[in-house]
Amino acid sequence: MTEMTALDTLLPGPLSLAGHRLGTPQQAGALTMVPVSGPARPGFVPPRTGLKLSRVTGYGRLELRNGAPAGVAIVPLHIGYVQDAAQNHALCRSALLGPGQKLLFEDACCVQQTQGGYLTGRDQWFFVLPGELRARALQLRGVHGYAKLWDDIADLNHRCGLPRRGHLEQILSRKRPVLTQFQSRLEPQPGQVGALFLVAGRFAGLELCPDPRYFAEMWPALACFAYGVAAWRTEPGPVPAAPYDAGTLAELRAALDRDRTDRLTGIAARIATAALDEPADVQEEERYLDLRLSTVTSPHLAGQIVTDGGRAVYASLFAR
């Protein structure tokens, strides 16, 4: 993996990731991030600057707008919006929006059980649902009912040692100071278009974006919330520093190199054994010109992908 590993050898057959490669992993606590580099696909609008929440027409009904004059907006899978004094909402699915288009998501879910008020277009910051909720949220795409995720949120809160309530902001806001540090604890590489995440040594997800700018705008939401929550829950305690068996500086450098090679080999092995290439069901959900948005489901993997002529443009796949 130090010499970059081709990604298409590791992932499901229907998803062509030719041209994408893995870089050198980074670790922060329980979270490992393997950078993905690859070709930048032109013609896509980044989510923070291009995609806007235009209004909420009712609980569980949220409208997004592609405000860019050109370029397709791929709505990131499981994106959610937070505002003070309004019901925070999250989406259960991705979508494709042409320039200037609006789309009303009638299958959105409220993630703040007892907070009244509707989100408005101002002061938005977005998150991605924590990995623990994503399989359920994906399962609930197309299902109307703003309260549909509250029980799962309450269970997650309980597992986090927080009151068992359908309030995701208990994690997102109250734990924000520690979660947002993942944005700095891990550091994207120049030109990075995606990342593969492991939590506590186990594959947790693969995120692929059309271009580096799109990925950079997704980075905080992915690192801090989609994967950071699970990593925070399993943050390892301090470990005493064991000296290497080295009698000179040269031997020390060699010992460090060997140790790192071993660790990289271990990470590569854990990715290889994550059963990512097992047969998957790919169900097309939407089209926009040559773009196809599909839901991928396999025994240990789920998520959505956007392809262009069979090549992956966007992917958000997570362990289930």
Binding site: S184, E187, A241, Y244, A246, L252
Partner: peptide, 21 residues
């Protein structure tokens, strides 16, 4: 924020005395 890899700095500095540094 040490991420490549966390703990490596501590292990290296812990080894320095026995490496004669």
């Amino acid at each position: 924020y040490e991420n490549r890899f966390p703990g490596d700095l501590a292990r290296v500095t812990a080894t320095l005395p026995r490496a004669g540094v």
